[in-house]
Design a binder for these strands. Structure first.
Lengths: 192, 192
DNA sequence: TCTATTCTGAAACAGTTGTTTCAGAATATC
DNA sequence: GATATTCTGAAACAACTGTTTCAGAATAGA
């Protein structure tokens, strides 16, 4: 009966996400967004909604990508400890080489306190991150790869919150060695 | 020869700091600030400067207060380990009972990447925090209060970045038990 | 091809932003 | 008390904010 939407919504969300990621929610203007997305604001409001709604979609998109990564790693046939150590090393790489910090962390501090929907998305993301760590730690314990004299739930919780501080440290000091040494200590705690 | 400034600058900075702390830099408007400070914007621009300058002064003020606390604790005559454990417990209390997260952490993620002066203030603050932890850990090791098979500099670095994640966790889950359990594990790592 | 429906672009919206202006009130020094 | 200087309050500033409007372009189904 009528015309179809002209732009690729997924691609537009991706572009918007990159801007929000870099600048944060409040420092990003609607013009910044429509420029990056290459669409008119009328199209944006017609299809996705207002700035808040767009941000929610972007955070959701960001956490969806993370989930895919965790699922892929959990499906690996390598030993739990190997997967865990590999994951830590890749996390360090991302912190050191990434242009911007983790969008989930930034959004937790800037937006989650004011926007319940964003908060819920981040809570779900954090729980998946926890579960990923818990599964690996628990399996590694059961296989005797790491010591099992500590509650795996506690370790997963503790480690899960550890990354955040590494991001802050790297923003302030831009010192890759610092991050690498902390990661090494992290691994050592598990294995020894 | 002429009139003096009418308002109490320290008090005004304190009030501005509270607003920035709660809302963040970008979400705070000049009106929000002048309302809280109870001064006219002309007075603000005459004495302190623009929004950025005011924010710099507020972050400086925030970190000054922290420095005072560390100095006081370091001057204590109690054992290093007792001071450290006490500090951790108070940090947990602040996370759990505080209305807002740490302003230094929030500002690191929101502002430090764009404002070199803010970044430098936070770097200095972080180094003092590190030094505080290092001194206590080193002294505790020398006194045989804690094991000394680990590099105190590494431990100080690691623990220094740990708090940040606790703030994020509390924003998302509002779970005091989670934070307390992590703090307990933290202390256990040192002492056992 | 016609047409009913939907999408798009450009412009406009009112409200807010950070900042400046300036007349007049206030006062430290003489 | 006079006066030269400085501070304050209210208003105004242009630029920008997020959002809406609407005429016309586009097209899926008849």
């Amino acid at each position: 009966m009528a015309r179809n939407v002209e732009f690729n919504e997924t691609l537009a969300i991706q572009k918007a996400m990159e801007v929000f990621w870099k600048k944060g929610y409040n420092a990003t203007s609607l013009r910044d967004l429509t420029d990056a997305m290459q669409i008119n604001s009328s199209s944006l409001y017609n299809t996705i909604g207002d700035k808040q709604e767009l941000f929610v979609r972007c955070v959701q998109h960001y956490t969806d990508i993370r989930k895919q990564d965790w699922d892929k790693r959990l499906a690996s046939k390598r030993s739990p400890l190997a997967v865990l150590v590999d994951y830590i090393h890749e996390a360090v790489k991302i912190i050191i080489n990434g242009e911007d910090s983790c969008m989930a962390v930034k959004s937790a501090f800037e937006v989650a306190t004011n926007d319940e929907r964003v908060k819920q998305i981040l809570v779900a993301d954090d729980q998946r991150s926890y579960q990923f760590l818990y599964d690996l730690i628990k399996n590694a314990m059961d296989k005797g790869e790491i010591r099992d004299d500590e509650d795996p739930a506690l370790l997963a919780d503790y480690f899960n919150s550890t990354w955040t501080g590494w991001y802050e440290s790297y923003i302030l000091h831009k010192d890759p060695v610092k991050i690498k040494r902390m990661a090494q200590y992290f691994i050592k705690q598990l294995t020894k």
